Simulated scan of single mutants.
Amino acid sequence: MSAIIATLISLTTPTLAFPKNGNDFIPHSSNDARITFTVPTADGTKFPFFGNEILSYDGARLRYYSSDNSSRELPLVIFLPGSGCAGAFSISADNHRTAGPEAFALQFKANARLIVMENPGIENRFARETGIDCSPAFQRMENLEVRVAALQAVVDDVRSRNWLHPHFMIVAGSEGVAWATRFATSSTNVSHLLLISGFGIGQPLATVHAALTGWGNWSFVGDEPSGAQGRLRSTLARWEQVRRGTDLEGGKTIAGHDQRYWRSIGTASPAEDALGTAAQLYVVQGGSDESSPAVNYEAGLAYLVAHNRPFVSEYIPCGDHFLICQGDGGVPRNLQDVITHGMEWFLTGRLMKSSVAVFNPFDALR
């Protein structure tokens, strides 16, 4: 869910369901640089995304999925995953393929090419995460440097197919928010950022907030000491350990992640990185999120205001990490609305004014 939790569940609500095919994959076409493949379904219906497998610049296998493999010129939208080592379009417990927030953008597929990025380090196509801890190989690649390089390799491959014309939007949730904002600091092609349930000044704030208030559904310090002061003392000691690079005994992890994660993704500040990009910002948060705290989002917006950084924001007071409210029956209606609003914002420049708050201190100068 969030970049900060131990459960390692990505911001990927099962919104599409297609019968699973018994075959692992069906080769579609290939060359030295890329293998494309279909995502099969048991009943022969056409799955709305095509798989692409390439190698990163250091030889690691990467996958991304496209809603359109034709040569049509279309605006490009890239969806980044949250945390976790489940593969894109993995198989659910009821034997169907699942999809995440990108499913809500399919209504725009005639007007935009949707790209779904898979986390680097996942060995098998359509891999289904079965436990809390991911493989050591995945954990070695669970840092911003690797992820930014992987996204650059995918963008370069997309460019080689003449799919980049010339700017694109990144949609990211949870842990993917830090990835998206860091990548945007080095890519002028990113014109829009839609950031959901993960924006703020960084995870140190979230850990301190959890220590002082008992907030959240995860633990940064392991065995929880009693009282706010004890939790804060342990949290600061853990951060000292991370910053010094002191390895944990017996290969233990911190909230499900190893030290490399906390020294990169764990110390990243999406709000600070947002100052390093000219991309338009659309930031979304649920007030009842127990994986990425609303206080971090609040601090992130305040940071942008203090630095005269324009943004658009949508806040759902009752929303959890998937923006689901208690009375929604588990259906991510708010997330669907946010993806719809964000796609319209990117494609037309129009905003659903009743749903958003806008900060633009330079508007009066135009």
Rank of each mutant, 00 (worst) to 15 (best):
D133R: 00
E102Q: 15
C134S: 06
C134H: 02
L114M: 10
A127P: 15
F108Y: 11
A105K: 05
A127Q: 14
C85P: 01
E118D: 08
A93D: 08
A88L: 10
R113C: 08
N124L: 01
I91R: 06
A99S: 14
F104E: 14
A86Y: 00
Q107S: 09
P120G: 04
E118G: 09
A112D: 03
R140W: 08
I122V: 08
A103Y: 11
I132C: 02
R140Y: 09
T98G: 09
N124A: 01
A112N: 06
I122E: 04
D94H: 05
L114E: 08
A103S: 15
F138V: 04
E118R: 02
F138Y: 15
I122D: 05
T130P: 12
F138N: 07
C134K: 03
N119I: 01
H96R: 15
T98K: 14
A93V: 06
E123F: 05
R140M: 11
F89E: 01
A105Y: 04
N95S: 10
A110Y: 11
R125I: 06
L114A: 04
F138P: 08
R125C: 00
F126L: 07
I122C: 03
K109E: 14
I91P: 02
I132M: 05
A137H: 13
A103R: 14
D94E: 06
G131N: 05
I115R: 07
T130V: 13
D94Y: 02
R113E: 09
I122S: 03
L114T: 08
F89K: 00
P101M: 15
A105P: 12
A112Q: 04
E102F: 12
F104Y: 12
S92I: 13
I115C: 14
T98H: 09
N124M: 01
A86S: 11
G121W: 01
C134T: 04
F108L: 04
A105D: 07
L114S: 05
G121F: 00
A105V: 10
I122M: 05
F108M: 08
E102W: 12
P136Y: 07
T98F: 07
E123I: 07
L106I: 12
G121R: 00
A86H: 03
R128A: 07
R97D: 12
L106Q: 14
S92Q: 15
Q139K: 10
A127F: 12
A137N: 11
M117V: 15
T130S: 10
R128E: 03
A88S: 15
Q139G: 08
F104R: 09
I91F: 02
S92A: 15
E123K: 12
I132N: 07
H96C: 13
I91G: 00
T130Q: 11
F126Q: 03
S90A: 10
F138W: 10
A137Q: 14
A110F: 10
Q107I: 05
